[in-house]
Each structure stands twice: as C-alpha cells, then as structure tokens.
C-alpha cells in the first residue's frame, strides 16, 4: 500500500518538473509575473495609494483585503470546527495515563516564562502595529500573542492559562476580530464606496484618502490579530485536552 501510494506522488513530481521547462529564469525581471502591469503597479504606486511603505502589507490588507478577510474567517472556522468536533466527544472515555506526569510546575520554567511572556506579548503588539513598515502584521502578531498564552499553559497547566483567557472569551474575541474586519469593510460600503474600500473612511476620519486607507489597514490588522490569537489558543486548549479543557498536557 505504501508503495502504491508512491505512484501518484511520483506522477505529480514528474508533472511538476516537466512544467518547469518553460518557467521564467529565477529572479528574472522579464518574467510575466514581474513584468505584468499589476506588479509594477504595486511597486510603483503602493506608497502613493496607501502611504504604506511595506508593499506586502498593503497588498494583503488592502489590494487583496478580501482574501485576507476570508483567511481570517478560515482561522475562525478552524477554531469553531475543533470545538464542534471535540466538545463532548471524549465523554465516557477514560483519559490516557501513559504520559502523564504528576508534578508541580517547575520553578525555573515558571519563573522564566513569567519574565518572557510580557516581552513576547509586547513584541506581538509591535509586530502587529509595525506591519505597515516592517515585515509582520495581523497574522504573525496574532500567532505570537496566542503563543504566549500557550507558553503559560505549557509551563503551568491549562487551567492557569484559561483563568487568564477563558475559552468563552476567546471565542468572543475571535468573533469580534471578524466583526472588526468586516465592520470596517461594511462601514466603507455604507459611506458610499465598495465593500472594503477604505478610502471612503475619510468621510469620518480627519485625514486624507490615502491616510484613511493606512489607518483602516491598521484596524483590519488588529481584527486579524484578535481572531488569530484567540483561535490559536482555542486550538491548543482543545487539542491538548481532548476537548475537556482541563489539565492539558
């Protein structure tokens, strides 16, 4: 069976290699992707359109902001699906004991984490907020934020982390993230533009059209960050405890 399943792998591999024969050269400026007016527009006009120095952020959050919204929704769905599947699924099943260690949280670990978590969280905020200028943005910031809570759960136990960030609140925050993102889109639609046309926000913000886009992008990144951070923690909490939300690893 294992050998049998290798066949499609090889077929696809050969196909992919064969497709490479008329690829553009690596890093070729003449390649269609680089030469196309779309790319040139991104390179030349991002700053003009949105005042955002980091093109990637502008493309993700503005030019293709609709994709990003649904990617955030995908993350949200993943969290909900995991809850939906795991909640109540382990009722009546005995908990496995083979790797459980009965021990107090280790002093050195907890103290280190105590020190490091605030730093991670501040860094997460930095990544999120500074995404306009440097690499980073809502996804990365959110993941970092979620990771900080997971770290707490790893070093103490799940209950300790959940006392800071209960699962109900997680879901609320995650939903709020989407409401924030979609809300900004809806608001700009209500103000007379198309959905996610942030420039229309100039009507309520005391800034130019370009800066309205700039600020709205920050808004949606925060929404993404909310959802991602909360859902990352939800995923971990549910998976680590088979949906019981107790004890964890």
């Amino acid at each position: 069976m294992k050998l049998f399943s290798l066949i499609p792998v090889f077929v696809i591999g050969v196909l992919l290699l064969w497709a490479g024969q008329d690829f553009p050269k690596w890093g070729d400026v003449e390649s269609p992707a680089s030469k196309s007016p779309v790319s040139s527009h991104f390179i030349a006009n991002t700053g003009v359109d949105t005042e955002v120095p980091n093109m990637v952020t502008a493309v993700l959050a503005d030019y293709r902001g609709f994709d990003t919204m649904f990617e955030t929704v995908v993350v949200f769905i993943a969290g909900m699906a995991v809850i939906a599947i795991l909640r109540g699924s382990s009722v009546g099943r005995p908990r496995r004991k083979d790797h459980e260690v009965e021990a107090e949280p280790d002093l050195i670990v907890t103290n280190t984490v105590r020190l490091i978590v605030p730093v991670i969280q501040i860094f997460a905020f930095y990544v999120l907020a500074h995404g306009h200028v440097s690499p980073g943005g809502g996804f990365q910031g959110g993941v970092l934020m979620g990771a900080s809570f997971i770290l707490i759960a790893l070093s103490w136990d799940l209950e300790k982390a959940m006392s800071r960030f209960p699962i109900e609140r997680c879901l609320f925050v995650a939903a709020m993230g989407i409401v924030l993102y979609g809300g900004i889109g809806l608001l700009s639609m209500m103000l007379g533009g198309e959905f996610l046309d942030y420039a229309e926000l100039e009507k309520i913000l005391p800034v130019s059209r370009e800066m309205a886009r700039y600020h709205a992008m920050l808004g949606v990144e925060i929404g993404v960050g909310f959802t991602v951070a909360a859902i990352m923690f939800v995923l971990y909490a549910n998976l680590a405890s088979e949906g019981r939300l107790k004890q964890g690893l």
């Binding site: 779309v38 902001g65 609709f66 533009g193 198309e194 959905f195 046309d197 420039a199």
Partner: peptide
Amino acid sequence: LGGWTLDLYPRGV
C-alpha cells in the same frame, strides 16, 4: 472589492 479600478491590464489590481 476595495474599490480598485479595472483599468489596468490585465483587469486591475
């Protein structure tokens, strides 16, 4: 979506 025009060949950004 996002109010970007379609003018740019091929069909907008």
